[in-house]
């Protein structure tokens, strides 16, 4: 269970990006976080694995306080938090297998990491997961030779290699074409239930948020202003979140049954 309470983040002396945010995620629910650019979605996710230092507040993952961890303790906690990025963040010049195995860096020794002598169990797990998402035949290809959707699958597998207790996805589909982005979303949804894994997804595409997630959290100016199921997420909620800002997805309202139209919002 992830429990965030009264989380605040400010960069320097500027207006806080997150203003006393509370959020609890339990079980294997897939939660999408929607909001305009600059609402603080990315900062929120990065506070959880401390790629960004929170200014104040508490973040607990399965009872472990994350905010005060230092050094080796922090690294041990990060192993349990998988993360998927908008730009995939793969190491282009390494092979797919090396990229996948890098998810185990928190577990193996420096010697094993440098010499690529990973334990057989890690290699088995890597092949198993790559087969699951359909990229096992690319094991020895360089990561930069894959298409966008395949690269994001590599990134997902890398995150799952960590044996995470939660998966964070920061706009995982924003760099992908509409069809591929749907595939990645349904993959994340399926993996969450298969592995009993809570998943937090920052997403711009409101239609996809409705289709693939169990719960939608709406953010605006660093505060949570909506929290509910996809069915509760109506025009009022959309206006509240994007009000005054041209919603990137308003067309999706009327044609949400035609998924091909989603591309317009990406």
């Amino acid at each position: 269970m992830l429990k965030i309470s009264n989380l605040e983040k400010r960069y320097g002396k500027n207006e806080p990006v997150l203003k006393g945010l509370d959020l609890t995620v339990d079980g294997s629910s897939v939660v999408s976080i929607v909001g305009a650019s600059g609402a603080g979605k990315s900062t929120l996710l990065r506070c959880i694995n401390r790629l960004v230092e929170p200014t104040s507040g508490r973040i607990q993952l399965n009872g472990l306080d994350l905010v005060d961890l230092r050094g080796a303790e922090l690294r041990r906690a990060r192993r349990k938090i998988g993360m998927v990025f908008q730009g995939f963040n793969l190491i282009d010049r390494l092979t797919v297998m090396e990229n996948v195995l890098s998810g185990r860096l928190g577990y193996v020794s420096l010697y094993r990491a440098i010499t690529r002598k990973y334990p057989q169990s890690d290699i088995d797990r890597a092949f198993h997961l790559m087969e699951r998402v359909g990229i096992d035949h690319y094991a020895n290809k360089r990561a930069d030779q894959l298409s966008g959707g395949e690269r994001q699958r590599v990134a997902v597998v890398r995150a799952l290699m960590q044996e995470p207790e939660i998966l964070l996805a920061d706009e995982p589909t924003a760099s992908l074409d509409p069809k591929t982005s749907q595939q990645i979303m349904s993959l994340l949804q399926a993996l969450a239930s298969e592995m009993d894994l809570p998943v937090l997804i920052n997403i711009h595409n409101v239609t996809q948020a409705r289709m693939y997630t169990d719960r939608i959290v709406g953010m605006r100016h660093g505060q949570m202003i909506f929290d509910g199921g996809p069915k509760d997420f109506n025009q009022d909620a959309l206006d509240a979140i994007y009000g005054g800002i041209e919603s990137p997805d308003e067309q999706g309202q009327t044609i949400e049954t035609a998924p091909a139209a989603e591309g317009a919002s990406v």
Partner: peptide, 27 residues
């Protein structure tokens, strides 16, 4: 810097981040 961020997120130590995210890029 993106791969660096990704390697940090896996819980890798600084030397491992160097070995995986920096060394291949500057080779």
């Amino acid at each position: 810097k993106k791969p660096v961020e990704a390697m940090q997120a896996t819980g890798a130590s600084k030397l491992k981040v160097v070995a995986y995210a920096i060394v291949p890029q500057v080779m």
